[in-house]
Design a protein around this nucleic acid. Structure first.
Length: 586
RNA sequence: CUCCCCGUAGCUCAGUUGGAUAGAGCGCAGGAUUCCUAAUCCUGAGGUCAGAGGUUCGAAUCCUCUCGGGGAGGCCA
């Protein structure tokens, strides 16, 4: 309807240009939007206001001329000029009822579109290091990314969901050492645990299992482990030097083979846990992409070779630098350290090249907001490689600050004190957690009150929406119990019986759904969908309280049932995009 | 010091990409069920849209500055 009206206005403008009413050079930006106030009709355009200045004409007068040039249209009841020069459209009730039939016909597909034209898009999200379980901070990125991917798929993009596994690099070594040291404790060795190690309980669990399976195969005496290792921070040393020495010691005492087994087992354990966690949270990835596999394929080296060939690399102070500052970054970045190891950034360059080589026409990375400084350098790298940086879109998700009531909860992965995503799911349930995360814009800092979310009270808006769905189901059950018939065809024929203001409002809200979906998808804003669903549920609950659906009048009853079934369908469609269940009873 | 995000009702947040009298939930004060689920609904109080300028027919929205909160600025990831 919106686009239809825009086309009508375009026609009117063209006609005015023909007749010399306005100058031909003027190219107006024709925009029709829904009104906030029913008294302003159903749709409004500010065309006359924006056109007034270039056309050198009084806006109200111009509006009148535009209206005069508008062709007759079957869907339009009347057109008015209001305020400073708005053109308000009143749509005939008859054509508004149409949406109920459309929803019934299209069912699960109602609201979907093909705007994406099958464009290949990759959405990469969560991608937490496999060094520990996911915490509630990851939960937000997980819910957000999953819904963004669903939304894009719903409007016609060909979407691939990917998790990048950072399983190369020092963090994995720290994990391996942490496991090994806990394992040695299992064996009965007495040694201090490094301040910089992973102290979480899950490390002990992995160590315990390793000991159970392998016995003393990886055991070394404590004094040989600690011999000559520089002191840890509490003892006046440097915690980084301390743990690096322990990593080196583990390598020499265990040998590369046994060391690799421990590292691999830690990685596999934690990754399996993350996969299960995300699956239970409703997320299913198409690809789990390993950084280590990428490195072994030689992709990092060839990416560096390509940069070097383009003249973007130089040596300084023993390290290899990428001249990113010439391409919009704040400063140049190291890609190969003095010790010969490539940096995480080097892997990331290769990774993004790999994405493009796989044929994705658009790449969406969803990162924590603390990585925002990282965006210019990765775009610089793409440009240096001769790629179009605008193919990459980075969406930043702000952290959620956790509260339990008034008390702020601090989070530290190393200390293992964080609240895990799994704990959250167990306490509040998947549906509530997902809905809660998607209630706010991603760039918005979010206060996440666990006490509130855990309370399972009415405060949680997910129940409000789900209840509307369950209520429709309940009405249909009552229909059976009362032995009443439902005649779908009669209901469709009698839709003009829906004359109550509550019904009009509900129909209007239903017809907005496709627009909401499009906006939410293109702007990557799931909260528009959750916000809409609350409105729809509100309209429905209000209607429910004001009118009886199961009335004796067959025609009216069938018309109302068709309306509320349309509501149920749209709620189910919206919730399914959020990966939130739509229960038939509560 | 530089850059990014943010500042809207007591609290948590929306605000249709510059539109008409700024909204919702929670909380607070009242009220609604002989009737399809009261996990619901209705009414009310509550605002200098952080502040000051500017852009124009029109600003919570765009520009500049100030104040305040959070984050980033590693040969960590």
């Amino acid at each position: 309807m919106k686009k239809h009206l825009e086309a009508l206005l375009q026609g009117a403008v063209d006609a005015l240009k023909e007749s010399g009413g306005i100058a031909r050079e003027i190219v107006p930006d024709i925009l029709v939007e829904r009104t906030r106030d029913a008294r302003h009709g159903d749709f409004a355009s500010n065309l006359a206001l924006t056109l007034a200045k270039p056309a050198r004409c009084n806006p109200r007068e111009l509006a009148q001329r535009i209206i005069n040039a508008l062709p007759d249209d079957a869907a339009i009841e009347r057109v008015e000029i209001a305020g400073p020069g708005f053109i308000n459209f009143f749509v005939k009730l008859q054509s508004q009822y149409q949406v109920i039939e459309t929803i019934h016909e299209q069912g699960h597909f109602f609201g979907r579109s093909e705007i994406g034209k099958g464009l290949n898009v990759q959405v990469e999200f969560v991608s937490a290091n496999p060094t520990g379980p996911l915490h509630v901070g990851h939960g937000r990125g997980a819910a957000y990314g999953g819904v963004v991917a669903n939304l894009l798929a719903a409007v016609g993009y060909d979407v691939q969901r990917e998790y990048y596994v950072n399983d190369a690099g020092r963090q994995m070594d720290i994990l391996a050492v942490s496991i090994w040291l806990r394992y040695l404790e299992e064996c009965g060795e007495l040694l201090p645990f490094p301040g910089n190690g992973y102290r979480g309980e899950y490390v002990r669990d992995i160590a315990w299992e390793l000991h159970k399976e392998a016995g003393d195969r990886y055991r070394c005496p404590a004094d040989r482990v600690m011999d000559g290792v520089p002191p840890d921070e509490p003892q006046g040393g440097d915690k980084e030097e301390h743990i690096d020495a322990l990593i080196a010691r583990a390598g020499t005492l265990l040998g590369p083979e046994r060391y690799r087994v421990i590292l691999q087992s830690g990685r596999d354990h934690i990754l399996a846990d993350i996969r299960e966690d995300l699956a239970e949270f409703g997320l299913h990835y198409d690809e789990w992409f390993s950084e280590r596999v990428l490195m072994q394929s030689g992709a990092v080296e060839s990416a560096l070779a390509k940069l070097r060939a383009g003249g973007h690399l130089y040596e300084k102070e023993g390290a290899l630098w990428f001249a990113s500052s010439a391409l919009g970054d704040e400063k140049d970045r190291v890609v190969r350290r003095e010790n010969g190891q490539t940096t995480y950034f080097a892997s990331d360059i290769a990774y993004h090249m790999n994405k493009l080589e796989r044929g994705f026409e658009r790449i969406i990375d969803i990162w924590g907001a603390d990585h925002h400084g990282y965006v210019p350098r990765i775009k610089a790298a793409m440009q240096a490689m001769g790629e179009d940086p605008s193919k990459l879109e980075v969406l930043l998700v702000q952290f959620a600050v956790l509260y339990r009531g008034k008390e702020k909860i601090s989070m530290s992965t190393r200390a293992g004190e964080f609240v895990t995503l799994r704990q959250l799911r167990n306490e509040v349930g998947k549906d509530a957690a997902r809905f809660f995360y998607c209630l706010r814009r991603a760039e918005q800092h979010m206060d996440f009150d666990l006490k509130l979310a855990c309370s399972q009270s009415n405060d949680n808006p997910v129940y409000y929406v789900q209840y509307a769905h369950a209520r429709v189901c309940s009405v249909l059950r009552q229909l059976d119990e009362k032995g009443l018939e439902r005649n779908l065809t009669q209901g469709m024929e009698q839709l003009e019986r829906l004359i109550e203001s509550h019904e009009q409002a509900l129909i209007g809200t239903l017809s907005r759904y496709p627009e909401i979906l499009e906006r939410a998808a293109l702007q990557h804003e799931p909260h528009q969908l959750t916000q809409y669903l609350r409105e729809l549920a509100n309209d429905f609950h209000t209607y429910y309280n004001a009118h009886q659906f199961l009335v004796d009048d067959n025609a009216l009853r069938n018309a109302r049932l068709n309306l509320i079934c349309a509501v149920r369908q749209v709620i189910a469609n919206g919730l399914s995009l959020l990966d939130v269940s739509a229960p038939e009873s509560m």
